[in-house]
Design a protein around this nucleic acid. Structure first.
Lengths: 186, 186
DNA sequence: GTCTATAATAAGATAGAC
DNA sequence: GTCTATCTTATTATAGAC
């Protein structure tokens, strides 16, 4: 079994994050993934929408793994989450801001055109909030943990969008600072 | 002087928010703005990019006005900002989640393809954070006010993206709650 | 300022050979 | 599973009449 399919999904996932759905062409996906042209519709008979939905979910799973791994390193929830933001900033700098918000672009731009993609984005947000919620539940009651996890995710996603357009880590720094204040006291 | 140009910009601004740059066609803009086909390139000789840049800035100015007006109604910064979020939620519900994040979609999807649009989005984020910063500066020192304004903007923008995909006001509720905790203490 | 028609390009998708 | 060639459609953009 070849890794062609996997390479297509990975590259699509990456391009969607940076360029959105309509901004990413099948040609570019095929070219940059060094993948046979004919394979795309072999693996994804329903075309672009099917491929994009899988790529979005794939990114979601990747994020969950990453977040879970980072949060597992530090016991205290507030410190662990701060560490998560610090790592996001380091990655941003390391990759020179050529990394975007996980799904915000596609979410805004394709939710209107495709219910399939809207649901995929929605699912990713739900999925990604889980490890945050679990971590916070060690200190807060379930309702509070859930609400906080959602708010933190929103702040991080928004900060990544702003970081992307400003080519700067400042928005993430600001969120990190806010979260420190916030989690200290609530 | 006709209002044709203005109608084009307004409709573009609205569609960009919901569908992003690549997801919004010139055909749709002309059709839905009930605008003469031939006028588009008369007013915007440089085509879609020029039009989009102006539409983005136009939305930014509209947001600044709106935010300034809302924040002016309540003296205490923390309460005023909470009121702002409540109004955003009410608008979301009233319009049945057919309203998106101001610029997140375009920001993620077009920043890569066009430096002009990237700057437009960047400018909007800067502009919009100003009234927040000013309000917060009544209670915090300037550096703290600036950082908080940026973080709040990020949280709101992210929450709007999540609200858009989930067709729910919950993300905004969560942010409202977080901000209340946060601004209480910091 | 606005119209219609059309050019030029690129997109997503399909067919059939191998 | 992969290749090439092609179809269809939509897009941005332009030309020239009025």
């Amino acid at each position: 079994m070849s890794d062609t399919r996997d390479r297509i999904v990975k590259k699509t996932s990456e391009l969607l994050m940076l360029q959105g759905y309509h901004g990413t062409g099948l040609n570019q996906i095929v070219a940059e993934s060094n993948t046979p042209r004919g394979s795309l519709y072999y693996y994804f008979p329903n075309g672009k929408e099917e491929l994009a939905a899988e790529a979005i979910r794939n990114r979601g799973e990747g994020m969950v793994e990453h977040i879970r791994a980072v949060l597992a390193q530090i016991d205290e929830p507030k410190e662990a989450i701060n560490q998560l933001v610090q790592i996001m900033m380091a990655n941003l700098l390391k990759r020179n801001f050529t990394t975007g918000a996980p799904v915000a672009g596609v979410a805004m731009e394709a939710s209107n055109a495709s219910e399939v993609l809207r649901e995929a984005c929605h699912d990713v947000y739900n999925l990604v909030s889980l490890p945050l919620k679990e971590k916070l539940a060690k200190v807060y009651d379930e309702e509070k943990a859930d609400s906080l996890a959602t708010a933190i995710l929103a702040a991080l996603e928004g900060a990544l969008v702003m970081a992307y357009t400003s080519r700067s880590a400042r928005p993430l720094e600001a969120v990190a600072e806010m979260l420190k204040d916030c989690l200290d006291k609530s």
